[in-house]
Design a protein around this nucleic acid. Structure first.
Length: 480
RNA sequence: UCCUCCUUAGCUCAGUUGGUUAGAGCACAUGACUGUUAAUCAUGGGGUCCAAGGUUCAAGUCCUUGAGGGGGAGCCA
């Protein structure tokens, strides 16, 4: 393949006079009689490389084929920039058009597009400044998460994507099958005969890797999963996807407090990683957010993005129990004045997002971890506390996003776990392998699930989760 | 799934009380300009007003239904 210098490297070079080759996609081209300027981007960074095309050196029929979106191959001399705004530029000696982009049909113009329009052109939105920045930050976050866990001696586990269990208990599942839906095999009783299906049983896409992560943790001591997760909920919100990526650490010999420490350390680590490694992209995202919020009244605007990230880094998360949270809410102004849609009457109520937002955004004004929820509103596998009423669950709540992490210490006692399984009608016969861990060498352990795209919302300041994953899947949409 | 708002040029939008041939900026084409920074200036082409039905002398505008999208809620990560 042709040798090229990536634009991120090229922008730093000062050995003027050197001949270089670079390639990329044209962002804008400005022309006058004698000279044209091309802003070239190859995705390697936020900034564009300025290519100077002299009318004497570059034939008009080549320049005529260059519009926004075209891919070009540039050979030229690196020179000190004669204009303002960049230190260097490439004085082109030869330009080859690798791929034209007919401006009558190419949808991405060098102007502001709405996020909705770009969502409908998700195959081309990588070519915008915004989605270039989001894509680079997303990569950095993925990398930082693996680095965080690797540095602490965690092992990455690939939990299965196909599951034969519907006991994961985290929502509606997508069924997968190779059966002919127009001609389903039936048993004598008239039921669908799943013995004839590919796996010999009914199977679904996973809604959580937690149960398998627990199996691994109870041998490897500390593991984490980072994989795709599927929920068939009919959720139409800016915080939900049908296919999203989840990080699920699971740690043996750990309790709920260790779990909270790990969650807080991890979030701070990855936020710091973004601040240290994605400066240009974050500055661009910060500017976008500020522009977006110009229409909002002063008191509803959030703090600048980078300041917000630093704030999370520098402050301890508030840790309170569910019981304390309910007390605060009961005595809060909006509750007394009945401004909440759901007024908090008594202990045991499930908190609505308006309550979580009040605690995080109004009362504490920082991330909050709520622990020890009533057992009746939480999952069967959570560690039962001595009070008989609560479980060692924890939710990490972030401003604007709400629940970014949900986790718990796990119930390691076989009898207590069995009691909950029976009380909550979990199909016990499907759980034998999970229950085995409590029979053989059980230990206290804990873990949580982090919604990766929700973390992305926080770090990028974007407000719709469909914009922080390249190809979002949601009800009635699986395009691209 | 519920509530609510929106859908007009390739894109972003305006379109008054229902009234003649539906507008602007950007993009594009042509021309001007000795180096621009989303260049500037002049000229030009470009429309199934989301779809179907209805009210009316007359519908982009009003009504009904549907589709798609935004925001909020529920469920959750």
């Amino acid at each position: 393949m042709m040798k090229r210098i990536r634009i991120v490297e090229l922008l730093e070079l000062t050995d003027f006079g050197k001949e270089i080759t670079t390639m990329g996609w044209v962002r804008t081209i400005r022309g006058s009689k004698n000279v044209s300027f091309i802003a070239l981007n190859d995705g390697s960074c936020m900034k564009n490389m300025q290519i100077v095309a002299d009318a004497e050196k570059i034939p008009a029929d080549v320049l005529d084929r260059i519009h926004s979106g075209a891919a070009i191959h540039v050979v030229g001399t690196l020179v000190e920039s004669q204009g303002k705004g960049q230190i260097n530029e490439v004085q082109a000696t030869e330009i080859k058009v690798l791929g034209e982009a007919d401006p009558d049909h190419y949808p991405i113009q060098p102007k502001r597009h709405t996020l909705e329009f770009l969502r409908e052109h998700a195959h081309l939105r990588f070519r915008t400044n915004l989605f270039g920045a989001i894509t680079r930050v997303r990569h950095a976050m993925i990398f930082a998460i693996h680095q965080f866990f690797n540095d602490r001696g965690f092992y990455n586990i690939h939990s299965p994507i196909v599951t034969g269990s519907d006991a994961e208990g985290a929502g509606e599942m997508f069924q997968i099958t190779t059966l002919d839906l127009n001609n389903l095999p039936r048993t004598e009783e008239g039921e669908i005969d799943y013995k004839k299906d590919f796996f010999g049983k009914q199977t679904n896409l996973t809604v959580s890797g937690q149960l398998e992560a627990e199996l691994a943790a109870l041998a490897m001591s500390q593991v984490y999963t980072f994989g795709p997760t599927f929920r068939a909920e009919n959720s139409n919100t800016s915080r939900h996807l049908a296919e999203f990526w989840m990080i699920e650490p699971e740690v043996a010999f750990a309790d709920i407090h260790d779990n909270m420490d790990l969650a807080e350390d991890m979030l701070k680590y990855v936020v710091k990683y973004a601040l240290d490694n994605c400066k240009d992209d974050l500055e661009f995202l910060q500017q976008r957010l500020a522009n977006e919020e110009k229409q909002k009244p002063q008191n509803e605007r959030s703090m600048p993005l980078i300041e917000k990230l630093q704030f999370v880094l520098e402050n301890d998360f508030e840790r309170i129990t569910y019981t304390q949270a309910i007390d605060i809410l009961k005595n809060s102004k909006p509750n007394k004045k009945k401004q909440f849609e759901y007024v908090i009457e008594e202990w045991g109520a499930d908190m609505q997002s308006e309550h979580e937002r009040y605690l995080v955004e109004k009362h504490f004004k920082k991330p909050v971890i709520i622990t020890d929820y009533p057992k009746d509103i939480k999952a069967f596998y959570m560690k039962q506390n001595d009070d008989g009423k609560t479980v060692a669950a924890m939710d990490v709540l972030f401003p604007q996003i709400g629940e970014i992490i949900g986790g718990s210490q796990r119930e390691e006692n076989y009898d207590k776990l069995m009691t909950r399984i029976k009380e909550m009608n979990i199909p016990e016969e499907e759980m034998w392998w999970f229950l085995d861990t409590r029979k053989f060498g059980t230990v206290p352990h804990a873990g949580y699930g982090l919604g990766f795209e929700r973390l992305m919302l926080f770090v990028t300041g974007m407000t719709n989760i469909r914009d922080v994953i390249p190809f979002p899947r949601f009800p009635k949409n699986a395009e691209f």
